[in-house]
């Protein structure tokens, strides 16, 4: 079996709500292996996205330990987490989250620039061509369709060649055809770069494409099913 790239040990997450603290995750212990494609499934409010955010260091665990590539994310401050992400992680959201004042090319080049790559724009252009947006590099997000925006977001996440790709319902805001195209691209990128992919999804057909599917219910792991071993 491949070694662990992401590791969560007895992780809890409690957030402040209007009616008092809300416990989102309860004692999650989970290892994600290098090269694995992990599907996080479960009903709405089960804590899938929160778990993904913890893995990306975008959210802080209330207790427990989150380790990525051997680094303890729970011990890092905001800036250390940002540096860690720029080197090792790519994140794709359901609502794309492109910066509206930047063109597609600029959006994709930004993480590469932040990581200090001198050829940031060349690589960004190459990545955009790879997702089929070569002719639309200079367009602003508002000038693109939802499917196109998500392709830009994919290119942005993949451009720095991250070890881990985290995707939070990347097809949730897209129609069937566009969603399928995005998933093909996502899995294609994973295959091309050999990254570990953690995918939050509601779609059974997407989950079916994953090596392993973890089902969450009420903030707890309800099942952990290995479909096939990571290559």
């Amino acid at each position: 079996m491949a070694d662990s790239i992401l590791s969560l040990a007895d992780v809890t997450l409690t957030l402040a709500g209007n009616a008092g603290p809300v416990e989102i995750l309860h004692g999650i212990t989970l290892d994600v292996h290098r090269g694995e494609t992990l599907g996080l499934v479960g009903p709405s409010g089960s804590g899938k996205s929160s778990l993904l955010m913890l893995m990306g260091g975008l959210e802080r665990a209330t207790s427990g330990r989150v380790t990525a590539l051997g680094h303890d994310l729970t011990a890092m401050n905001e800036d250390q987490l940002a540096r860690f992400r720029r080197q090792h992680m790519g994140v794709v959201f359901q609502s794309f989250h492109l910066i509206p004042t930047m063109t597609a090319l600029e959006n994709v080049a930004t993480p590469l620039e932040l990581a200090g790559h001198r050829d940031a724009f060349d690589r960004a252009a190459e990545e955009l061509r790879a997702v089929g947006l070569g002719p639309r590099m200079d367009h602003y997000p508002s000038q693109m369709s939802g499917g196109e925006q998500q392709r830009v977001a994919l290119a942005r996440a993949a451009a720095p060649r991250p070890h881990v790709l985290l995707a939070d319902e990347p097809t949730g805001n897209l129609d069937g055809a566009n969603g399928a195209a995005i998933m093909d691209l996502l899995f294609g990128l994973r295959d091309r770069h050999g990254a570990t992919l953690v995918l939050v999804t509601h779609a059974p057909d997407l989950a079916a494409r994953c090596d392993r599917v973890v089902r969450l219910a009420d903030g707890r792991i309800a099942s952990d099913e290995l479909r096939r071993a990571a290559e």
Binding site: L81, A82, R85, Q87, I99, T110, L114
Partner: peptide, 8 residues
């Protein structure tokens, strides 16, 4: 977004 893609 910038923090997500690695900005300090």
């Amino acid at each position: 977004v910038l923090k997500t893609v690695g900005a300090v």
